[in-house]
Design a protein around this nucleic acid. Structure first.
Lengths: 216, 216, 216, 216
DNA sequence: GATGAATGAGTCTTCATTCAT
DNA sequence: GATGAATGAAGACTCATTCAT
């Protein structure tokens, strides 16, 4: 057992309890916000769902608005991280081009359809008027970076002569537009969960069209 | 008795005034909802913006929820109608294929960026949790029909041998996915108005990619 | 019966009811504020005491702070008016000097001990930290004017050779200081109502001392 | 090593720290109460100003109400003590009558205008409804005793034939009424600090009038 | 003994909705 | 039919107070 472990274990009870409580609050808040939206979510609901008293939320997070911001940025960071990891599967060898892109597309769709991911996206859209800066922040730290990374990968393939791409950033945007296709419209609000089967077929078709346009 | 009077008098002064009042309410409501969202829009604001008393809104529209539904469906119907008209520009002759599709793309982007259109879309997304049925209704009467119509046009071109398309509905979806590209993500909430210039370039690029994939 | 009267009488019911309700609120608020102080007075108490619903208070007066301001200024104006009227009894003839001053003193004490007058004064003192401007306003429109008027009367008597006064404003201040004597200290807070009998004796003694100092 | 030192040292640094902490709390509380009033003063503010944790206040003083009582009585005792000392300057010899009284008046005004003195007085007035007994207690142990003592001094002068006074207690009250004049009204709430210069002139004039009435 | 954390009660305020005019 | 006035319900937030450490 390391010293670090010891510290955590010994000094734990209060500290551990505090962090647990904070986490419980944030998680409960995400669930409630996702279920009924920002305006309809009362702190009473959240407190009940988290199993804490209302003032405890204020002690930890300060205000309803602040709570929302924390929930959004934390969850978005997690989701964005996962999405970025998808690029690890990006194909480097030409003979794996189509199956590699399909795998990427498949994983992207999976990330997109992930429950928490959908929830943040929906809430971000829904409250964009109230929290425009929050939207910008999440967008900058997530999708924008992803597009950049994806464009880089595509450019490398293009340079190697495996794809005919002039504008990699545009191509990257079109790639995800084709892969997600109508997911943005369908799922944004997540009233109904998406059918991953169907979404996968759409994604494969998107890759197909992408390769028809830029392949070889 | 003047002509102006005649108009008013026949349909009855009250009737005319009544309809005017109703229209004023609905228009004011759209502006207010678009500005601050459903939950934040108080009937006081709307009544003030419309220049009527609060109970008058109830007399005409019954309830806040009902008012919202009316505003959404009426505005959406108008916007969807305009979008559908765009297909009148769809190219029938093969030699106008690219410029024709570009014209369609251009007009679609214009429709998409129209202020009222953006407002309804944003509100529909934002309140999709609260009004899932409303979302479905508007979607069924708008985008779904548009995709069907567009698919039909594409199928005709494919049958004539001008495009290589197997699944016209999918192609239609991909066409608008490519044309709008990141518009859905960018504009959904309309915090910032879109730059039509930039959007147009994206749309032309979308048409290009579409034709690279399905052309000839 | 004049036209104005007619209008009032006919159009009355609603208007009458509205004003009645406003008056009821203000009066109830004065009672509650006087009883428990500004901070402890909840709008629930006031609403209950006035026999109206809480929002009605907001419709009429806007906010707790505003309500307090109105209650204070209105009540103070009434009280100040009565105090000013006391000077009508001020003696003009020299042979009524002492009894005249005693009458003035007597009436001043009565005004001072008036329940509402005490209530405003106490509240004004108690909340002077929170509402310094309110205190200044009431003071300027009341006591300051009264001192000026009293100084004028004294100056006239001095000019006529009936009093030996160099600085009439100072003498005026000293007159009321002697008449009220420890009333300010005793009553400010009105925990116990003052004994008018006792206060009257003090006032007469004050007049006596005043005449010993400035008389003849 | 002195006995005093021994006591402190033996009783332990903790004891010393404890008393320091208590004193820090009471002083901080006075500042906060003076600044924002009883109801607005939160224990959080006081704890922060004292540099201690909130429960520590409860350990030492029990409750907010109790804390207020302690602060008031302790501070009032100090202020009252100083005021009582003023009488040491009271003139015994007839040839120092006027300058002696003026000196007393001057010192009284100084005591009255002392920052802490004003703060207690203001708070006592402001919270007289909530703490009537506290007001009585302070009054009995302060002003009442002072008046008694002053009356005694005046009686002695009267008996010696230097002043024509029938009712010494009344005269004492009138003396301070004339000396303070409108100080009670002006300063009670201490929004603005009093101008000692001006107050001094008023006091001298008060002594003058007092002597005009009772002198010789 | 001192503290960080948690809480139950209570406050002001807003809003959708309904009468009486 | 249109309106001014009134209301019941509900929500965000604060605070004095108490445990467990």
């Amino acid at each position: 057992m390391s010293v670090g472990d010891t510290e955590k274990t010994t000094a734990a009870p209060s500290e551990r309890g505090r962090l647990d409580k904070r986490r419980a609050i944030v998680e409960a808040a995400l669930r409630v916000f996702a279920r009924v939206g920002y305006a309809q979510a009362s702190l009473d609901m959240i407190a009940a769902e988290a199993g804490v008293a209302k003032p405890t939320i204020y002690n930890h997070l300060g205000s309803k608005e602040n709570l929302f911001r924390h929930v959004m940025t934390e969850t978005a960071a997690r989701a964005n991280g996962k999405t970025l990891e998808v690029l690890d599967s990006f194909p480097n060898e030409v003979d794996r081009l189509r199956p590699g892109l399909e795998e990427v597309a498949h994983k992207l769709v999976a990330c997109y359809c992930d429950e928490q991911s959908q929830a943040v996206r929906r809430l971000l859209y829904a409250e964009a008027v109230r929290f425009p800066d929050l939207f910008d922040e999440v967008r900058a730290s997530g999708p924008d970076q992803f597009i950049e990374a994806l464009a880089g990968r595509l450019a490398r393939l293009a340079n190697a002569g495996h794809l005919r791409i002039e504008d990699p950033v545009r191509a990257a945007n079109q790639f995800i537009a084709l892969v997600y296709e109508e997911l943005p419209t369908l799922s944004t609000f997540g009233s109904r969960p998406l059918d991953p089967k169907e979404a996968d077929k759409v994604a494969v078709a998107g890759v197909d069209t992408f390769l028809r346009a830029f392949g070889e």
